[in-house]
Write a protein that binds this DNA or RNA. Structure first.
Lengths: 218, 218, 218, 218
DNA sequence: AATGAATGAGGGTTCATTCAT
DNA sequence: AATGAATGAACCCTCATTCAT
């Protein structure tokens, strides 16, 4: 009983990840319904049937894609947060901005499009996304804003709405990257700069008038 | 000798609009690829074949839907704009906010989801949307912001980024209404209040410190 | 109770014939299955529904077309025959040749294509065509040939085969006119001359060596 | 490492031919438009979808059928011709007659019906058939007849018309086999004998009076 | 008698899924 | 484990037929 050679072993273990990567690309580009499993398999370098050795159906592949990339990004976010403390503005500038800058550059940014598009056809995804992304995400940011208010750093704004004024453009940036973006001759926005400017604009609206940190940092 | 009696004539003239309404609903809910022409026809109260008396194909129906609802909303927006003059903050509060409040309540808000979802599969839609929505929309808002800066009402921010910090949350609100929104037990946001608060937050970040209009209006 | 005006009356009485003419054209050009009843109706200058006031179904229209044009041509042939007597060669030259020359010029020539094409799908047509065309047609020509043999004018050939050696090219000429013919840049054959030459060539093979009529007539 | 075992490989290689055979049968029997792809697939012993693994559409299947059977028969004809030399009458009797006798017995004879029926709907087929069948076929037979005239074996007839007096009945025999033939109680013609007798009748009309070969051979 | 909008069954085609190899 | 040929359910679209006007 010879064990699998290392090369083959590595291959076999890498398969699910390769399939997830391929599926993310194809699903985000075409939409789930219009995507062909053939395309996914070929982009992963395997034959159509092989896909079904790892995922029971196209739908389960979709769910696996969404779960996988969301889990990765959440983990990264949590790491970044625990490593930081300090005033709210600094947290936004030094944790939130870089985390979104990294996300918008990664293929995982396509998951937003996938969720927006497919969530009404797959209630499981809605529940998962709400539980794993929306609720914890809002909790984290609401905490930051609330602490800023409590400390006098921020004006006493509506926390809930502020969170979405902050988040929605960052999500839209990711959506744009995978929808209209690729159809345009010239890029509509520079993602990293937009993220930074957007956060600064919000901070300008949030920071208390007498607060020393009001000036935009270099 | 009119060959059609009034009753029948009325039906024939109303059909395209009824089909567009039904198609918008079904396409936004299911996505274009997953939508069945049967569903569209039945929701419009006609049989499958009837749809093809008015639209040459499912794809042309999609394009007609997008063109129709975009054209309507743009017309409404232009009317609102020409009827107004005054400081930029007032324009945002009195024209932009009500226009988006009306839009988010109307079925036409679903077009954003449709465009985001399908634009990569239908280049014609990309061209149309860029030409008819993105470019004029940005032009209008950039004009408002720029005038605010020029008059000293606003701080000298990056106009381009400011426009998208303003717009993206409003678009996301529409997307949310047709994607995760219907899956949630309780509404995540009150649309009209969010629109107002978002614009006020941005204005707080935009208005020049010494400017008298800085205070949120009653 | 005003009677129909003469114009309308005439119109109404002419309808079936106009529909038959249109149907012949469309059926012959496209084939029965590929022909659309819309096309037939519009070519007859009426709306689609009107066709069904005169014919119960597309299939009955087909049968009516075939019956109508065959009946006309057979009647013409019988008239020509009874008006003639004389040697067999003269009958062929003076009755058969002109009858086919007229037929190949008339739209009725398309019926051959229709019958060849559709006979296997519509057994009724097979029975009708065999009974009304094949059998009487062969009887007439076999009679002519047989009389030629009996009188010593013709060599003692196989009558049955001779009939089809005579007829088949004339039928093929009609088929060609409605199939490959219209696709060609230049006409492949001059129909009238081909009919005459074909009959002469056969006569050259039929006539007894010593017979005086062997020479081709001017 | 051949990925396909012999048994499976053999199936895959045989499939196109099996599908062409089935398609020829169904198309000739029903006509192209009335034929159902289901019928073709089932007659080939496969499911409907399998057909589309080998042919892109029903129309391409039609073209493949026509091209395939025509190419086969032309190849056979050319072989027979190059193997022969001698007087024109002998060529007709020893090459043309047997070639048509074989053809009328083979399913390929149905192609004539297919071409006659469909040529007006598919211009590609018209061009192909004219180029590959009509023109070379006429060239070959016109050559035979012309050489007969030049050598004094044949009377100085119109070569072009003679070719079609010769060919048309043979084509009609093939058409008959697939149209009215199957509808008749008793066969109207014995194909092999008719072909022979038809050629002999034409030869009787063609051969010069003084020529020794005038007598029909045993 | 005539119209033509509406119907819905039918057929071409696609593609997720299976399974023999 | 991997393949890819085969399957057949599903869906877009057409068009013969109907019927309200």
């Amino acid at each position: 009983m010879s064990p699998l050679t290392p090369a083959r072993q590595r291959r076999k273990e890498a398969r699910p990840q390769e399939l997830l990567d391929a599926a993310l690309q194809v699903f985000v580009e075409k939409g789930f319904a219009a995507a062909r499993t053939d395309d996914v398999a070929h982009r992963a370098g395997v034959a159509k049937g092989t896909l079904y050795l790892y995922f029971a159906s196209k739908e389960e592949l979709l769910e696996a894609v969404i779960r996988h990339y969301i889990a990765s990004e959440i983990a990264a976010g949590q790491e970044a947060l625990v490593a930081h403390a300090g005033p709210s503005a600094a947290l936004l500038r030094e944790v939130v901005v870089p985390w979104w800058q990294r996300l918008v550059d990664s293929p995982a940014s396509g998951v937003f499009k996938l969720v927006i598009t497919e969530v009404r056809n797959f209630p499981e995804i809605a529940a998962f996304y709400t539980r794993e992304v929306i609720e914890p995400g809002e909790r984290v940011l609401a905490g930051i804003v609330q602490r800023g208010i409590d400390s006098g750093e921020f004006r006493p704004v509506d926390v809930h709405h502020t969170v979405y004024s902050l988040l929605f453009p960052l999500v839209m940036l990711c959506l744009h990257k995978h929808s209209l973006g690729p159809c345009m001759d010239r890029p509509m926005l520079d993602p990293h700069r937009f993220i930074r400017d957007h956060v600064e604009l919000l901070l300008a609206g949030l920071l208390s008038p007498g607060h020393g940190a009001a000036a935009t940092p270099a």
